[in-house]
Simulated scan of single mutants.
Amino acid sequence: MSAQFSRARTVRSAVRPVAAPDAVTVEPPADGRDLPTVVRPKEADADLVAWATSGKEWLCAKLLEHRALLFRGWQVSDAATFQRFVAAVSDGEPLQYRDRSTPRDEVGDNVYLSTTYPAAERIELHNEGTYWTAWPQKLFFCCLTAPPVGGETPIADNRRIKERIPAAVRERLERLGVRYVRNYNHGFGLTWQEAYQTDSRAEVDRYAAANDTRTEWLDDDHLRTVQIRPATRTHPVTGEQLWFNHAAFFHVSSHSPQVREALVAALGEDGLPFGTSYGDGSPISDDDARAISEAYRAEETAFRWAEGDVLLLDNMSVAHARRPYEGDRKILVAMTDPVLGAPADAEGER
C-alpha cells in the first residue's frame, strides 16, 4: 500500500539538557500485563513538556518498541499542558474529528474530551479512524479527573488480536475488506451536521468524494454513506500487517437483543445508524462478529487511571476501550501524525 509517515526528528531544547533516558525510569507493565510500559521522572518536579521536547527521538523510538507508554508522576493538570506535550512529540498539528461516529466536546485546538457516552455503558475495543482514508498514528489520552469507580481505558495489542481470530474469518475479511453503511438524520444517532461538522450538504459531498465515501441523500435530510475499507493496514515503519477495522464494533450484533430487534423493526437492516458486512456486500454472520469480539476481549488489559496520567498509543498497533464508571471522569484525547492509506489494499474494494 502507499502510506506517508514522517520519522521523528530530535528537537533541541535549552530548557532540559538532560538526556531523555537519564531523566526517567522505564518500568515494565505491572501485574503481569503486556501493556502499557510506564515512564516516570526521576525528579519529582520534572517538566514533561520540556523533557519530551529534548527527548522526542528517544520517546518515539520507545513508542515503536512498546506500542503503549504511560507517563505517570509528571503532574499534568490542565489541557494546555497536555496540548503542549502533544505538540512536542508530534509531527504537525492535532487532527480534527471529522466523519465522527460519537459526540465530541472540544476543549482546545483539536483536543477533545473523550467520547460523550452514558457512564453506565461500555465502549468496546477499537482503533481511531479505521474507516478514514487518513488515520492517526499517535493517539494521546490525559486524565484530569479519575473516577472513583471504574472508568478504565482498556487496551489490547492488535497483533495478538489478529492471531486469535479464526483463520477463515480473518482470511475472508482480509480478502474482501469491510463495508460500512451509516444512516444520519432519521431520529437515531448523530446528525450528519454533527458528524461532518458542517451544515452544508455540498461540503459533505465534497468531503465524501475526497475520502472514498459514497453518499446518498434520502427523504429530504436523511443521508446514507457507504465506505469499503481494508480489514488490515500496513504499519508505515515496521511493515506489519495489523488488524485495523470496525467490523465487529459496528456490527448489528453489538446491540443487545432487545435493542437490535427494536432498531431492525423500526429501520430495517439498511437503515441502521451503523452496519457492517464483508466488502462484497455479503453479511458478516453473528458468529463471525462474535469470534472477532471474543479475540479483542481475550487480549484486553487495563490499569486504574491516576490524575495527571498521560497515555500515548501507537494507534495502529493498540486498540482502546472504556469501562463503565461512577462519579466524575475527565479524560482528554488528541490524535496526530496522519497515515495515508490506499483503499485498494483490500481485494474486495472496487
Rank of each mutant, 00 (worst) to 15 (best):
A262M: 15
T276R: 06
F71H: 09
R304H: 07
G73F: 08
P230L: 04
R164D: 00
F71M: 12
G55D: 07
N127T: 05
D328F: 11
D286T: 11
D221N: 12
R233D: 06
H255N: 15
R170K: 07
E300A: 11
A50S: 13
S6K: 10
T130D: 07
A209L: 10
A319N: 00
F244P: 01
T301G: 10
T213H: 03
A44N: 08
N127D: 02
S253R: 08
R323Y: 06
F249M: 04
A52M: 08
A168H: 00
W192V: 03
T81E: 15
C60Q: 15
E93S: 11
A319C: 03
I161W: 01
E326T: 12
Q96Y: 08
V111P: 11
D314R: 02
R175S: 09
D91G: 09
G268H: 09
S282F: 09
E27G: 05
P148V: 08
P338S: 01
C60F: 09
E299Y: 03
H251A: 07
A119E: 15
G341Y: 09
A247K: 00
K62L: 15
V149H: 13
Y278S: 07
G189F: 08
D22R: 13
S77F: 08
D288Q: 13
F140S: 09
V38F: 08
I292S: 01
M1I: 11
D45G: 10
A289S: 12
R175M: 05
T115L: 05
R159W: 03
E299G: 03
V259M: 14
E326K: 08
S101W: 06
A265Y: 10
P343N: 12
H126E: 03
V169N: 01
Y117S: 10
H186F: 14
V252L: 12
V24E: 13
S256N: 06
I161V: 15
V11S: 14
V76I: 12
G92V: 07
R16C: 14
V107P: 14
T130W: 06
N127P: 01
A334H: 04
G279P: 04
A319W: 00
R172G: 00
T238R: 01
M316R: 03
W192D: 04
Y325S: 06
D157P: 00
A262R: 14
P343D: 12
R201Y: 05
T53E: 15
R304S: 10
V178Q: 03
A266K: 12
S293T: 01
E307G: 04
A119S: 15
R159V: 01
F274W: 15
L144M: 10
P166H: 00
R323A: 11
Y325M: 05
L95V: 02
S277Q: 15
F71G: 09
Y184C: 04
V252F: 05
P147S: 11
T215M: 02
P148W: 11
K62T: 10
S2A: 11
T130N: 08
R12S: 15
P166W: 01
I155E: 02
A134T: 13
T130M: 09
R172W: 01
W243A: 00
K162R: 14
D221G: 10
Y196C: 05
V204N: 03
E106N: 04
C60Y: 10
G177A: 06
G275R: 13
W217M: 01
E269K: 07
V339H: 01
V15G: 09
A30F: 05
